[in-house]
Design a protein around this nucleic acid. Structure first.
Length: 263
DNA sequence: GAGTATGTTATATG
DNA sequence: GCATATAACATACT
């Protein structure tokens, strides 16, 4: 469930359910997913504390308290749900926050997700060396952080230390919107296209958040509605192709995104 | 069994 | 430091 729009959707969901509610009890069901903290650290930070808000940076979600925050990363398959019935359970629950008004569950079949107690959002962002959040980064900074790079546009946009929040699916969408082949080296991307990438990054992320990350409800012309090799390109009808770029499967239109010199 | 999967990190190589 | 490739992590599904 987890690139920036999914995490932002989860944040809003957590915010509406947890705000001003107190933590009654914490159950760490999978200590392997704890990051740089013991179950006791987490319990001490959370027990009896009132939630004062939520935050997000890239794909990282934060549930805020007076003197620290619960940091959550959903990995590849993490999801969060809230239930009025404290006895509700999920098939792969890894963390349970028993609140006054119900229970928040982190469910994650693949266990690539992580959670822990941090002093602040800034601490976590600094310790991971994350770049600016993809949704709030100003155009000038976005451009500045890309220029001078030599790698492929796809690998660069997926690098969380350069820009935080974009993953495999949304980068494919953004590159499709800008008609750029995922393998295009940064030096071959015109300045105007870099500015276009910033605009598309915003519009794609915002569009997905707006439809609650339900790809079928995205506007026409979005690759994510039918992302699969062989599907028709929403713009020209050609069969979409897949290629490995930066170790990840990339879906693109061979007609609309043919600007890469090496093909 | 093989191949794939929305992510991150360590390691090796140039 | 930069860039690339690979494996590893742990699990589900086709």
């Amino acid at each position: 469930m987890p690139e920036l729009p999914e995490v932002e959707t989860a944040r809003r969901y957590v915010h509406s359910n947890l705000l001003h509610s107190k933590v009654v009890r914490v159950e760490v069901l999978d200590p392997l997913m704890l990051e740089r903290c013991s179950p006791k650290d987490l319990q001490d930070g959370l027990q009896g504390k009132e939630n004062v808000g939520t935050g997000r940076h890239g794909k990282n979600l934060f549930v805020l308290f007076q003197d620290g925050a619960l940091h959550l990363h959903l990995g590849m398959s993490g999801s969060i749900s809230f239930h009025d019935d404290m006895d509700h359970h999920r098939p792969h629950e890894r963390l349970r926050l028993m609140m006054e008004n119900g229970v928040m569950i982190l469910d994650d079949p693949r266990r690539f997700g992580r959670f822990g107690w941090v002093r602040s959002m800034d601490d976590l962002v600094a310790s991971k060396g994350l770049g600016p959040d993809a949704l709030s980064v100003p155009k000038e900074e976005f451009v500045r952080r890309l220029e001078g790079r030599k790698g492929s546009i796809k690998s660069t946009l997926m690098n969380q230390r350069i820009i935080a929040g974009l993953g495999n699916l949304y980068v494919d969408e953004i590159l499709f919107q800008e008609s750029l082949h995922p393998r295009t080296p940064l030096p071959d991307v015109p300045h105007a296209s870099i500015c276009g990438l910033w605009r598309s990054t915003r519009s794609v992320l915002e569009a997905s958040i707006e439809v609650g990350t339900d790809f079928e409800r995205l506007p026409r012309g979005y690759l994510l509605r039918q992302r699969g090799r062989g599907s028709p390109c929403p713009r020209c009808g050609s069969r979409l192709e897949a290629a490995l770029v930066g170790g990840r499967t990339s879906v693109f239109c061979p007609e609309c995104q043919r600007n890469c010199l090496e093909g």
